[in-house]
Nucleic acid binder design. Structure first.
Lengths: 265, 265
DNA sequence: TGTGAAGCCTGACCCGAGGTCAAGGTCAAC
DNA sequence: GTTGACCTTGACCTCGGGTCAGGCTTCACA
C-alpha cells in the first residue's frame, strides 16, 4: 500500500528483514527476482533498506508460501479482492489434498513391499515360491522363478493371476513337479542330448493331459504384442541355461501341433 | 518354458520396454544416465536392445520409484541384501510420512486462512478488528491496525498475545477509545499544531492511569533487537500520517519519563 | 521401390523453491 | 588497520523427468 520506510533509521537490512520473517537472505532476494516483493530503496552503499510496509508484504508472502501456495500464485492472490482470495486458497488447498493422497498411496505401496517380506510380489506369488522351496526345488530355480513372476506381473498384469492359478495346479501334480525338476537338471546337458527330446515329449504330454495346467479365461482377448511379451517372460530363464532354449522350443512345437494357443507358461 | 522371439531377435527397443514398464522413453534414458539401469547392448544401427533381464531390472526400479524411493537410493537398495533392503524401505517410508505430515500441516494452515474469513490473523485478532469497526472507527484506521497486527505477529510472536490483551483492555475504556479517535483525526493536522501536545499528554496520562493498558508479563526478557522490532511495529502507521511521528514521539517520551519501559503499542 | 510416418539417437534447456559457492564491496568493533 | 560479519551480483546445483531440435533408421503402405 504505502511506500517504504519513512522512519528515522531508514529501514533495516536484508539480513534483519529475513531474520524477522524467519527466512534466509537468499529467499528474500528470490522473492524480489520473481516479482513477489518490490525492491526497497537502497542506501548510499547499495544495500537494500526495508521499511515496515516492505516487511508487512514479506510476512504476507511468507505466510502464503509456507501454507503451500506456489510462489507464482502469491502475487495475484495478494492483489485480489476477498472473494478471489478465498477462492484461490480453496483451489490451492484442493491441490495440496491431491498431493497428500498421492504420497499416502506411495507410502502404502512401500509398506506392502516391506511387509510382503521380500521383493515386489503379492502374497499369493510368495506362497508359491515358498512351496517350490518346500518341494525341494533348487534355490537357484526358485530365484529364477521369482524373477519370471516379477516380469510377468509387469508385462502381462491381466494374466498374472491366471499364471498363478496354472502354477498352483501344476504343483499339485507330482508328475509335473518331477518333470520340472528333471528339466532344471537338463540345463547343464549338451543341447544335442537326446534325453531332451524325451523330456520335452513327457512335458507336453503332461500339459495336454491336464487341461487346468494350461487353462485360460474363456473371454481372453489376444493383444498384438503378446508374442513379444510372453517370449520375454518364458525365455527369461534361458539366459541362465542355454539348453533350455531347445527344450522350450520342442515343448512349444508339440503344444502348437496339438492346437494349444499361446500363451502358456 | 515356451514361445520364441526373445533370444533370436536380441530384445525389444526402448519404446517397447518403456511401454511395458508403463513409463516414457525419456524416463528410461534418464535411468541409464543416472546409473540405475545398465546400458543394454546396441544393434547395428545404434538402437538399444532390451532383454528380459534388462526389463526385469527396469520393473524393479520402477516399482521402487513409484513407491516414493528417491532415485539416488534405488540402486543401493536393489544391490543390498534382504535385511538392508527392508531397513532401507522402512527409512524411506518414514521420510514419506514426514513429508505427508508437513503437507497436512500446510493444508491446515491454509484452511485456517480460508475459514478465518480474511488475511493472516487468528480469530482473537479478527474479533478485535471487528470491535474497532463496531466502535465507529474509520475503516482506514481498522485496515492500518490490521497491518500492524500482522507485522506484530511476525516480528514479536512472543508478545503478540500480550498486545492483544492490552488492546482488549484499552477498548474497554471509553476514555481511551475517544482519545484514539482524536489521535486518528490528528493525522491531518499540521505537525506543529499545539493540540498534538495536549493529546499526547492525555494519552500518556490515560495509559499511566490504567496499568493493564501497558501490562507486560513479569518474566519478560528483553532481546537486543527490541528497539528495532517495536519501532517497526509502532511506527507502521506513520507511513500514512506524518503527524503521527510527532504524536508517538511525545507519548513515548512521557512514558519513559514516568519509568515505563518500551515495548508498548 | 519409393515415400511418409513413426521411432530412435544425442544434446540442450525448462520447471519450483530456493541452496551453495565465488569474488568482491561495506561496516562496526577492537 | 585489521578482522569478521554482512552486503552485492552472478552462476551453477538440486529432482524427476518434459519438451524441443536436428538428424538417422525402420516399417507399412502404395
Amino acid at each position: 500500500m504505502a511506500p517504504s520506510t519513512g522512519t528515522t533509521t531508514g529501514g533495516v537490512t536484508i539480513g534483519q528483514a529475513a531474520a524477522f520473517a524467519g527466512v534466509t537472505v537468499k529467499t528474500v532476494r528470490h522473492y524480489h527476482q520473481h516479482g513477489l516483493l518490490d525492491e526497497p530503496p537502497r542506501d548510499s552503499s547499495g544495500y537494500r533498506r526495508y521499511g515496515s510496509a516492505d516487511l508487512l508484504r514479506l510476512v504476507q508472502v511468507r505466510t502464503l508460501a509456507t501454507a503451500g501456495v506456489p510462489l507464482a500464485e502469491v502475487r495475484p492472490l495478494l492483489d485480489a479482492d476477498t472473494e478471489q482470495f478465498t477462492a484461490g486458497l480453496v483451489d490451492v488447498e484442493q491441490r495440496l489434498t491431491e498431493r497428500i493422497a498421492d504420497l499416502i498411496a506411495r507410502r502404502d505401496t512401500l509398506r506392502q513391499l516391506t511387509e510382503g517380506d521380500r521383493l515386489l510380489l503379492p502374497d499369493r506369488a510368495l506362497a508359491i515360491l515358498d512351496r517350490l522351496t518346500d518341494l525341494g526345488f533348487d534355490p537357484d530355480y526358485v530365484a529364477s522363478q521369482r524373477e519370471a513372476l516379477v516380469l510377468a506381473r509387469a508385462l502381462a498384469p491381466e494374466l498374472f493371476d491366471i499364471f498363478l492359478t496354472q502354477l498352483e495346479h501344476r504343483l499339485d501334480d507330482p508328475g509335473f513337479v518331477d518333470l520340472t525338476k528333471r528339466g532344471w537338471d537338463a540345463r547343464s546337458w549338451d543341447p544335442d542330448d537326446h534325453r531332451i527330446d524325451d523330456l520335452a515329449s513327457a512335458l507336453a504330454d503332461n500339459l495336454l493331459a491336464n487341461p487346468e495346467h494350461l487353462a485360460l479365461p474363456t473371454d481372453y482377448q489376444p493383444r498384438p504384442d503378446d508374442v513379444t511379451r510372453y517370449g520375454l517372460i518364458n525365455h527369461h530363464l534361458e539366459d541362465h541355461a542355454p539348453t533350455w532354449t531347445r527344450l522350450n522350443t520342442l515343448v512349444e512345437a508339440k503344444l502348437r501341433a496339438a492346437g494349444v494357443p499361446i500363451p502358456h507358461q
